[in-house]
Design a protein around this nucleic acid. Structure first.
Length: 587
RNA sequence: GCACCCGUAGCUCAGUUGGAUAGAGCGUUUGAUUGCGGAUCAAAAGGUCACAGGUUCAAGUCCUGUCGGGUGUACCA
């Protein structure tokens, strides 16, 4: 496998100082609870109603108190409702079911809150990360190997986690910890120096290096002495002897150029690229420091860390022959990052097979006194339909480039009979194709294994990125037509007054945006945001169908609807951007 | 052997950290005055949430056990 390696906002004040409706309702409920003996306002939870018929928001606080207070839950709920202070917020408060309290806002209140989202610099996203720094370690491809579809997960999920943290106000350091050191370079050097050069590819290309590597593995099966040569070349490289040292640097340069091409297509960028080799000269001091702290000791000739009551198997930090390992580099990396950046949190995005490794070195790092919240965000394996784990050792994988090309081509086919300029079509196909590939990955729980299927990876219909982009493009289309048709009209400060049920529904959904982003950030699960976006787009589609805007003759209603659509488009744009997807004015 | 992850509609997957009648997409079936853009919308059919206990006013969600699938398990990364 060539992938080397690799959290609840409650209430908050928005930047414009407008208090969100949930906070207002919660305050009213707290006042009511205070009038009832024995209630604990800490237990108060307010959530969005699970069904439109139940109102806007609901609380189960009565059921939670009923047993303790030895009261009938419905009666207690009624008591709480009766104790609510006079207000001009709640249109209704009703007891339902086993003791739920269902709450409904006045339409004007709901509309004002929705419109207020636009006034907030962050569209209602709580800035839970302000003054906090987080290092995110993701993508991390291996030098001299083409990026293929299995690299997609770490890169795309990592990039979305980065953007989520930025949107939540964190200072982010995105670090690409590329695999630029290790035994594969010994093999590559042997092949480069002694094998016939592959002729069908350019010598400056990553395919060239990859073919050399593959032919080494093939030959080594029958000629075991090659492995010995590889070890010798590696040793020479480690001593920085020429020409090995220069060749190694050249391999890295070729690889980085190719990676950069893919990253640009994906819209992914890093703040630092500190590969494994960056830490080479820190490894011995690291082992020494761990020895001083009694965290490692000699065992069977190696330097090994052990764990309390054998919670984990032993972890070798330095081999019998003095060489360092994966865990050594990772520990040195943690030490460097904490000393250099002083982050509150470090996040690693890798596949789930590395769980034990991370638990081990997190434990060692904590005991070494390198205090920081370290989190391993793991994702499942990508498999082919046959269920075979992919490997670059023998080739036969789908290069990432091919996947992206295919995605863009399929998107272009949809535009075949559309009369847009050719270059615009290509731009649309690019934005749609890339987003579609990203969405199929980001819309599911990262932990699940995924079975790669072309049709699924490149889906352009239903619950897919183009569906979200299409909803956005429709609003932009309406806004443009509105300017043509009513050039004197301005809706910038128009009041939103949701009258239809679908309008209420859309408003309520938009008001959840900030909390959803927070949840996605803290749990490092971009799929929560993807879900929200799909929910928003499908509500908009229904709204679009039921509530005409430009055809509406009543100006107040027309303005209300258009303003609502515009708030929707702002949230969509922000949300899509957080998932690393581009928006289009038309498609 | 031990540890961890997963098991939800025919298929691919969600499920707001314990809340009301378990949701989408695809596929299947039916419909939408050429529509403010049909990459869309409206609707139907499809479920013993692997199984068995337990905790709770309330369990797909938490605990225990069983079965099935996956991954890992000291000198690879």
């Amino acid at each position: 496998m060539s992938i080397r390696r690799r959290c609840r906002a409650n209430f908050y004040i928005l930047s414009h100082g407008i208090i969100p409706p949930m906070q207002t309702i919660k305050n009213l409920l707290m006042e009511a609870l205070a009038k009832i003996d024995g209630t604990d306002s800490q237990l108060l939870e307010l959530t969005a109603a699970t069904q439109l018929a139940f109102g806007d928001y609901q609380t189960n606080v009565a059921m939670q108190h009923a047993k303790k207070l030895k009261k009938n839950p419905r009666e207690l709920a009624q008591q709480i409702v009766s104790a609510l202070p006079e207000n001009n917020i709640l249109q209704s408060a009703e007891v339902a079911g086993a003791g739920f309290i269902n709450l409904r806002l006045y339409p004007e209140v709901l509309g004002r809150a929705t419109a207020a989202l636009e006034e907030d610099d962050h569209l209602g996203i709580p800035q839970i990360g302000s003054l906090q720094k987080v290092v995110i370690d993701y993508s991390s491809p291996n030098v001299a190997k083409t990026m293929h579809i299995a690299h997609l997960r770490s890169t795309i999920i990592g990039d979305a986690i980065k953007r989520l943290h930025l949107a939540s106000g964190y200072e982010v350091i995105a670090d690409n910890h590329i695999g630029d050191w290790g035994t594969q370079f010994g093999k590559l050097l042997v092949a480069y120096k002694t094998f016939a050069k592959p002729e069908d590819v350019s010598e400056d290309s990553i395919e060239f290096l990859e073919k050399l590597y593959q032919s080494f593995n093939l030959k080594a099966e029958t000629e075991p002495e090659l492995e010995e040569q590889a070890r010798a070349e590696l040793l020479s490289l480690q001593k920085k002897e020429e020409p090995n040292y220069s060749l190694w640097k050249k391999f890295i340069q070729i690889s980085l150029q190719e990676f950069e091409e893919v990253y640009q297509r994906l819209g992914v960028c890093f703040d630092t690229i500190h590969g494994e080799s960056f830490y080479n000269d820190q490894l011995q001091s690291l082992v020494d420091e761990l020895k001083e702290r009694d965290l490692v000791r000699e065992s069977e000739g190696a330097q090994v860390a052990f764990f309390e009551s054998d919670q984990y198997p032993p972890c070798v930090i330095q081999k019998r022959d003095g060489a360092f390992l994966y865990a050594t580099t990772d520990l040195a990396t943690v030490r460097y990052r904490i000393n250099t950046y002083k982050p509150q949190r470090i996040i690693y995005v890798t596949d789930s097979r590395q769980k034990l490794h991370f638990e081990q070195f997190f434990s060692i790092a904590h005991r070494a006194g390198w205090h920081c919240d370290m989190q391993h965000v793991m994702f499942g394996l990508m498999k082919f339909a046959e269920g075979v784990v992919m490997s670059t050792r023998k080739g036969a994988v789908i290069p990432l480039r091919d996947l992206l090309d295919e995605a863009e081509n399929r998107a272009l086919q949809v535009l075949e009979f559309v009369e847009y300029p050719e270059d615009e079509k290509r731009e649309i196909a690019r934005a749609v194709g890339i987003a579609a590939v990203k969405y199929q990955d980001l819309s599911q729980n990262p932990i699940s294994d995924i079975v790669f299927q072309w049709d699924k990876a490149l889906n352009l219909q239903g619950n897919s990125a183009p569906y979200l982009q299409y909803a956005y493009a429709r609003v932009r289309g309406i806004a443009a037509k509105h300017e043509e048709k009513f050039p004197q009209d301005t809706v910038k400060d128009a009041a939103i007054v949701p009258k239809l049920e679908i309008e209420r529904d859309l408003c309520l959904h938009l008001l959840q945006f900030g909390a959803v982003v927070s949840r996605a950030t803290e749990s490092c699960k971009p799929n929560h945001l993807a879900d929200w976006l799909f929910g928003a787009a499908s509500r908009f589609a229904a709204f679009y169908n039921q509530a005409p805007i430009l055809r509406e003759e009543n100006q107040e209603i027309r303005h209300s609807r258009l303003r609502l659509a515009l708030v929707f488009s702002r949230c969509m744009s922000k949300g899509l951007n957080i998932l690393g997807m581009d928006t289009l004015e038309r498609m």
